[in-house]
């Protein structure tokens, strides 16, 4: 995760990313000291409940907080050896939609109500391909629409976002993001509002396109099932911080943070009765303006008192090698609790 001695960085490397918003109610500490990396062809899953800072993190990578005067972004973001936090607006603009692209949460509001789907994709293509004629861009767009599985693409080219069904709209968003063959694709909850079959189709689609282009993908989701299926690495976020990070297999088979255990308990499982499937983590997410002292998770953590008072006073750092965790519980104890108390109930 840190820069290596050979001097070659991971394709995307984020170091100590911090994002704050100054609001009338106080300073929102939306992301604190986040560090992670993604290689080409790999998928990083980011999970965490609503408000944990997943979208803010990805918007920071695309430099989309720059136009918000109340947002402060600190840290480093390296994309293919170019640092983006200190880069000029113009340099970042040229990367957006070209080398790096994003599929947004809620495609209905993410599409312009007064422009056709086709026009919006054409525009994105032409801004990165100067001198391409409207006709060529149109052909390219229709190809993309067909590629993401939209039937009758010539006809749908001329329709508006609100005329599409949820699944088709999300496909169109994906076509918009992929039209310039981005090397980094960030998908922010691309399947949330969709029914299960469509969800599966969309995820398959993203995976196929990734295989084809060898892009790095960041997949943001509430849904651990999605991560388990797609991700090579996983970040678990809580209250704007990464609290567990590691290869997907490790995080799923040996999760080390009590919050991750809670998330696993809230994962839908087909072998259980619907009623028992979902047990969300009890309690409410922390306020990002006034984070609790010590470990931000302590008000909801069943193990907060097990290790003396540290959970209430001292912020746990993210520690460990490939599989890192931010929790004061000693490693053996965590392993024991997981296997003896948590796993049997999952």
């Amino acid at each position: 995760m840190s820069s290596t001695t050979t001097g070659t960085r991971p394709f995307l490397e984020v170091k100590d990313l911090t994002v704050r918003f100054e609001t009338d109610d106080g300073i929102v500490q939306a992301v604190s000291n986040s560090s992670f990396a993604v290689e080409r062809g790999k998928t990083l899953g980011i999970v965490g409940e609503s408000g944990s800072g997943k979208s803010v993190t990805s918007l920071a990578v695309l430099g989309l907080h720059r136009t918000r005067s109340n947002a402060k972004v600190a840290g480093e973001i390296w994309l293919d050896d170019q640092e983006l936090v200190t880069a000029t607006d113009e340099d970042v603009r040229k990367l957006r939609g070209g080398k790096m692209a994003m599929i947004f949460q809620d495609p209905l509001s993410a599409m312009h109500p007064y422009y056709t789907v086709g026009a919006q994709i054409v525009e994105g293509y032409r801004v990165h391909h100067k001198g391409v004629s409207k006709k060529e861009a149109r052909t390219r767009t229709i190809d993309m629409l067909a590629r993401v599985g939209i039937p009758q693409p010539e006809k749908r080219f001329n329709e508006y976002g609100h005329q599409f069904s949820g699944g088709m709209r999300q496909r169109a968003m994906i076509a918009m993001a992929l039209v310039n063959d981005p090397q980094l694709l960030i998908a922010d909850e691309p399947t949330t509002a969709l029914d299960v079959t469509v969800q599966a189709q969309i995820l398959d689609l993203i995976r196929d396109l990734q295989d084809e282009f060898g892009s790095a993908v960041i997949m943001i989701t509430h849904d651990l099932g999605v991560v388990a299926e797609l991700a090579d690495d996983v970040l678990v976020m809580y209250g704007g911080k990464i609290i567990e990070r590691g290869p997907a297999a490790d995080v799923f088979h040996e999760p080390q943070h009590p919050y991750t255990w809670g998330l696993l308990g809230s994962m839908p499982r087909l072998d259980r009765d619907v009623r028992d499937r979902l047990t969300p983590v009890k309690g409410t997410p922390p306020s990002l303006i006034n984070l609790p002292d010590g470990c931000a998770f302590h008000p909801r953590c069943p193990y907060a008192g097990r290790n003396g008072n540290r959970s209430f006073t001292e912020v746990p750092e993210l520690r460990g090698g490939v599989h890192a965790v931010a929790c004061h519980l000693p490693a053996e104890e965590k392993r024991r609790i997981f296997h003896e108390e948590v796993a049997p109930n999952l």
């Binding site: 809620d106 993410a110 599409m111 919006q120 994105g124 801004v127 990165h128």
Partner: peptide, 15 residues
């Protein structure tokens, strides 16, 4: 959101 989308495509602020 659609203004954010427009920016995410790499359009200039002017556009």
């Amino acid at each position: 959101d659609y203004i954010r989308t427009a920016r995410s495509k790499g359009l200039t602020e002017r556009t």
